[in-house]
Simulated assay, not measured.
Amino acid sequence: MTSREIEVLMLLLENKSNLEISSDLFISMGTVKSHIHNIFIKLDVTKRKEVQRLYAEYDEKL
């Protein structure tokens, strides 16, 4: 993942909305949606809850 995608991912894990992510990172909503789309593809998920589940599973293994 790119550094920006990781920043977006961290905010997704905080349950932030696209609007909140856009405001926090000073990027457009379209850019947020693109980053989220790319994250979903890279993680092979289709929903935000799946991202959180994957992270929880990963965190448990550490």
Rank of each mutant, 00 (worst) to 15 (best):
51 V>Q: 01
49 K>C: 09
22 S>K: 01
17 S>H: 05
17 S>K: 10
44 D>Q: 12
27 I>E: 00
16 K>H: 05
44 D>G: 07
11 L>F: 05
60 E>Q: 15
16 K>E: 04
31 T>Q: 06
33 K>A: 04
48 R>M: 11
57 E>I: 13
34 S>G: 08
22 S>F: 02
19 L>T: 05
21 I>E: 00
48 R>N: 08
29 M>I: 15
32 V>C: 03
41 I>F: 11
5 E>C: 07
62 L>V: 04
19 L>A: 08
62 L>I: 04
5 E>D: 14
57 E>F: 12
13 L>D: 04
17 S>A: 08
24 D>K: 10
28 S>Y: 04
11 L>W: 02
9 L>T: 01
1 M>F: 06
41 I>H: 11
61 K>S: 14
47 K>M: 10
59 D>E: 13
30 G>Q: 14
21 I>Q: 02
36 I>A: 03
60 E>F: 12
5 E>R: 14
20 E>L: 10
1 M>S: 11
57 E>P: 03
44 D>T: 10
60 E>R: 15
47 K>Y: 08
46 T>M: 06
40 F>L: 12
34 S>M: 12
31 T>E: 02
50 E>H: 07
59 D>V: 08
11 L>A: 01
57 E>H: 10
34 S>A: 09
60 E>C: 11
50 E>A: 09
37 H>N: 14
32 V>S: 02
54 L>D: 04
45 V>Q: 03
26 F>S: 15
40 F>C: 06
50 E>N: 04
58 Y>Q: 10
26 F>W: 06
23 S>Q: 09
26 F>I: 06
25 L>M: 04
43 L>W: 03
3 S>G: 04
53 R>I: 13
56 A>K: 13
11 L>K: 00
43 L>S: 05
45 V>N: 02
3 S>W: 14
12 L>G: 00
14 E>A: 10
56 A>I: 03
52 Q>V: 05
52 Q>D: 05
41 I>G: 05
14 E>D: 12
1 M>L: 09
6 I>H: 07
52 Q>F: 08
12 L>M: 13
58 Y>I: 13
2 T>P: 02
16 K>I: 04
59 D>Y: 08
32 V>I: 09
12 L>H: 01
39 I>N: 00
14 E>N: 11
55 Y>I: 03
11 L>R: 00
22 S>A: 03
46 T>V: 14
